[in-house]
Every structure is written in C-alpha cells, then in structure tokens.
Nucleic acid binder design. Sequence first.
DNA 1: ATCCGTTATCGTATTTATACGATAATATCG
DNA 2: CGATATTATCGTATAAATACGATAACGGAT
Lengths: 112, 112
Amino acid sequence: MLAKTSNFEADLQDVATFAKALGHPARAAIVQHLAQNESCICGEIVDVIPLAQATVSRHLKTLKEAGLVKGEIDGPRSCYCLDAAGFARFAATMRDFLDGVEAHPIGDQCCP
Amino acid sequence: MLAKTSNFEADLQDVATFAKALGHPARAAIVQHLAQNESCICGEIVDVIPLAQATVSRHLKTLKEAGLVKGEIDGPRSCYCLDAAGFARFAATMRDFLDGVEAHPIGDQCCP
DNA sequence: ATCCGTTATCGTATTTATACGATAATATCG
DNA sequence: CGATATTATCGTATAAATACGATAACGGAT
C-alpha cells in the first residue's frame, strides 16, 4: 500500500489514530469494561470478550499502542487499566473535532 | 477471518462503526473540510486531499455508507455535504461513550 | 450528436487487520 | 524445584483496507 497517512495535519492524524483504536467493537468493549470496573481486571477481560485469548491479547496490545490502556504484565496475572492521561487526550481530541465540525452550520440542503 | 463483530452490544457496535469511519486521516480531513466550507464542495475535495481521485472517491463512499456524508451525484459536478442527522447521531454516540467511560473514576494506579 | 470535464467504478496490487491454535514465557503455589 | 495457571507471542490463514491507473458513465457545452 504505502501508508500515505503522513501528509495530513497532525490533529487530523490524531483523530484518525484514536478513532482507529476504537474502530473495533472488541476494543470499544474492552475500554468500556475497564472503565466500569475501575480496578483493573486481568484475564477477566478474556471471559467478557467473545473472542479467543490470543485475539483479545492482540486487541489489548493495539489499545496499549494507542495509549488508551496501560498494562502491567506480571506473568500469571497481567493487569490492565485505562491510561488516564491517554484517554483524556483521546477524549479531548475527539471532542475538539466534534465541536469543530459542529461549530459550522451544517447545511443539510447542499447544492440545490 | 470471520467478522465476529456481531457478538457485541449494539451501542458498542455503533461506536466502533463510527470510529472506524473516522479512522483514516483522509476521511477525518474530508469531514472537517465539508464542515468548514458549509456549502458542499464537489471535486474540490480531491484537490485538498493528497490522494488520487479514485482513492478519494472511495473514502467518500465509505463516509457515505457510515452515514456521515451525503452525496448527490450529477455527472459532471458531484456534490457532497455532511449528513446533518448522521453526524449528530455520530457525535452523540461518541460523546455518550466518552462520558460513560469518564463517569467512572479512572484509577491510574491499577493493580499495585 | 459529439466532445469535455468530472466522478464513479473496475481491476489489481500491496498492506494491514483479524482471528485462532499452538507454543513459549513467567510468576505463583505446592 | 516442579507443577500450574495466566498471558504474550508465533505461525498461519483469511478478510478487509488502502491505493492507484485505467476505464466507464454521465451531464453539460459546443
């Protein structure tokens, strides 16, 4: 392909990166689950997500790379929790984007 | 693969679907551009996005399928604009998700 | 009716994402 | 130390996404 994603403005890049991280229901579910159980759940995530353990582990890795989740891997019982700072940045980025779009009047009847 | 995305709750599914639609900087840029120029721009989008015309057209299709953008194709000068209702739904879905996560205390020191 | 400019689609190639079984790694417990 | 439980990684297969050139389709202008 070519990953020509570098020709865009940084803020749009951030929006896209964060959005992509949530762009799979399993990852959205993981984030929500980690939030609802504020203490970080470990392998319990695997039980909640209807996917194989290896697949869940990979989704967790994706979330970690996106900075939304932190994980302490201690052999038998790994430990994941939301990355407070990372999630805050994400939320701010997304809200700014949404607000920015809605700051303009969205003409519904375009090109009459 | 198997697209086992159907085993998740509907709201998470929506979050993921919308997030995925924004999960590419070109699409985020298109949405932002359509918002900033409230009148719908037609082929101008291609000039703004640093990608080939065919690729931009496909991204537009993706956005249209996600319900974020509306397009009137009239031969020589197609016309795209934000889908006001669709974008509102998206914004609400995303904000609900963010709010829901932040409604819980995000324990930063997980599993001590 | 023909040409022209614009846009969508097709065909294709490459990369990335998704998924799972199998295996390795690692800390805890007996 | 050995057994066990948990998790990450590997190998692999398949699907989806991304990208572009080429071509078709289409309305408007000549």
